[in-house]
């Protein structure tokens, strides 16, 4: 149903993504594609897979940016997937009820069997989190790996999204952002996690952690010359104590 849950979901499951350690390796991109191709949201098709211009459906993409200039410049990799917004207009615009937000955990999903492929929800998503699948003609989006995180047959440590499990830079964290005492909320508080484009009013669940300030070299006082009392290399003898 395209109506959003009446009251905020008790749990707000989502991701916290650390721009400080993301190295842009694309592991999360492929893991997401691989899991979801064969998972609940799948298949995620690829048109012209071995042709001139391959073009497929992806639920998570990583962009490389340069930010700032000169001394302040840095390279920032930015993973982009659904933020599971509280005020998800992608849901309310949907004419068929295919898009919905789950009351129990806040996950925004598409019911592939109801989607007519009108694309309106993709237009309504400011974050570019939805893609129309060329083969099935239905809208696809990050499911927060709903078929992993709640699969009780998996050992508890594996009940996390594929992109989180795979991230070698440990830049992706999964959990309940509604829990103010939980690890995610604490991480967000400690690191000044931000909400993307709050001015649009979508109230995303996911948060991004900005790069840490970094420790420049300039702070280092230069070394002082070894006192040359005992002449050239005298300090060696002193160091050896003999």
């Amino acid at each position: 149903m395209t109506a959003l849950p009446d009251r905020p979901p008790a749990r707000r499951l989502g991701l916290v993504i650390d721009l400080d350690t993301c190295v842009g390796c694309q592991a999360c991109v492929i893991a997401c594609k691989a899991w979801n191709s064969g998972g609940a949201a799948g298949p995620l098709a690829d048109a012209e897979p071995y042709g001139r211009r391959p073009s497929g459906t992806w639920l998570n993409r990583v962009h490389g940016f340069e930010v700032g200039e000169g001394e302040d410049g840095r390279t920032v990799y930015f993973p982009r997937s659904c933020l599971h917004c509280e005020n998800a207009a992608c849901v309310t615009v949907c004419p068929t009820g295919a898009s919905y937000k789950r009351a129990e955990d806040g996950i925004v999903l598409v019911d592939a069997s109801r989607c007519i492929g009108c694309s309106l929800c993709a237009w309504a998503c400011p974050y570019g989190a939805r893609e129309l699948d060329p083969a099935s003609g239905v809208m696809k989006k990050c499911t927060l790996c709903v078929d992993r995180i709640h699969d009780e047959r998996l050992p508890p440590e594996e009940r996390e999204p594929a992109c989180v499990a795979v991230c070698p830079a440990r830049a992706r964290h999964f959990g309940d952002l509604a829990d103010p005492e939980g690890p995610l909320a604490r991480l967000v508080a400690e690191r000044g996690g931000v909400e993307l484009l709050p001015e649009l009013g979508y109230r995303p669940t996911n948060r991004y952690l900005p790069p840490r300030p970094g420790r420049p070299l300039a702070a280092q006082a230069p070394l002082v010359e070894a006192p040359s009392t005992a002449g050239f290399l005298g300090w060696v003898d002193r160091l050896l104590g003999g």
Partner: peptide
């Protein structure tokens, strides 16, 4: 078109 996940996919959450 490649939809190699098709045989496994589509189980509705």
């Amino acid at each position: 078109v490649l939809d190699r996940g098709a045989p496994f996919a589509g189980r509705r959450p």
